[in-house]
Nucleic acid binder design. Structure first.
Lengths: 199, 199
DNA sequence: GCATGAATAGAACGATCGTTCTATTCTGCG
DNA sequence: CGCAGAATAGAACGATCGTTCTATTCATGC
């Protein structure tokens, strides 16, 4: 939500968000404090604060950054695949990579759990991103129906829900039980799910 | 992990845990502070503290309490159903009720997200409970294989993983998008999943 | 190169955190 | 009833929190 138009301060602002992003991955959004991120970037608390005006605004900036990273690493590359099953499977595969690749949990999952019953700006933005993600997922599914690769009676929102569940379970298991087992469970689940909807 | 043998203090200890449990449902484990729970039960901070010796011990007590509640409301009642599909479906149904019934998120889900990469006693106990839950789930599935209701080639851990994913997705959706839609998605997903494993 | 405004630092604020220590109140056994 | 020990309160600790205020440093257009 913040373009790097130019400006000296915009650069440091982006670097602050970048550090904060990694802190959030390890500590969650509630674990993100201005003092911690200030020390991490080698600035003073007030120096960091001045860029955002409040902790909540910093949290929102990190949330936006996470959504953008997700789009860049999962959805945008999948657009290079042909419409239909190839693209849908690319999304699923890259989504798994996204959840497994980096250290720390997925910020979107953290945000959903931490703010799902805490009314406010953050919760609303989480809902916005999650709604958009689900819609894009459903659209990719509908394309696979149009190409005739998935059955005409496929309920795209239902399938998107089940797909989401597989990713969530893999995220959960990978962090508690180990990456490899979680990945193979998720891969098999994805295959089974898509196969069950084949035309 | 704490028996209510007798004793005056054991009663107040239990009531403290009970209040803390509900705070955790709304605020998560990291949002649980001794001061807050003290005010909630009408005691002094040090009075509450003396019962546990540390905040971490209080968090563990709440985690144990949550696990016990889950067992009492989901698994134990399901034991009254006949081994096999009826019992497995009862688990799934009661699990959904558990996740939807009360206000605030599931403490187990919160704990898993908050401590999945924060080494320590809490993370280890989360892993213990999650491992046990998965094993019990797999055992219920294997029984349904033994009764001949599920196919002999059913991979119980794989099916348990996918079942877990459906519950996670429903928990997620219910808190962000609304209860009814999430419940119906989860119900349909469960039916499809079990049907795909039928003998 | 100098003035102007942005960018950052530093100190201080009230609040809350977990924890410790010392007293006081309460409970239950003899 | 009285006494020992559990149960609780209260005050204080150092630390950290988000935020505000005032300076000071920096970058930059003229």
């Amino acid at each position: 939500m913040q373009a790097a138009t130019a400006g000296k301060g915009a650069i440091t602002r982006d670097s602050i968000i970048d550090r904060a992003y990694w802190i959030v991955r390890r500590e969650g959004f509630e674990g993100l404090s201005i003092g911690t991120v200030a020390t991490s970037v080698g600035m003073s608390k007030s120096g960091v604060f001045a860029h955002f005006g409040s902790r909540e605004e910093l949290q929102l900036a990190v949330l936006d950054s996470a959504a953008q990273r997700f789009a860049e690493q999962v959805f945008l590359p999948a657009l290079r695949e042909r419409r239909g099953l190839p693209r849908l499977e690319a999304i699923g595969r890259r989504w798994m990579d996204w959840l497994l690749s980096e250290q720390g949990g997925c910020p979107m999952v953290s945000a959903a759990i931490e703010y799902d019953d805490r009314p406010g700006v953050i919760r609303e933005r989480v809902i916005f991103y999650q709604t958009r993600l689900r819609a894009e997922l459903a659209r990719a599914i509908e394309m696979a129906v149009e190409t005739g690769e998935l059955g005409k009676d496929t309920d795209s929102m239902q399938l998107a829900f089940e797909l989401f569940g597989i990713e969530l379970a893999m995220h959960h298991d990978s962090r508690l039980f180990g990456f490899e087992e979680a990945r193979s469970h998720a891969r098999r689940a994805l295959e089974r799910l898509i196969a069950s909807c084949r035309a």
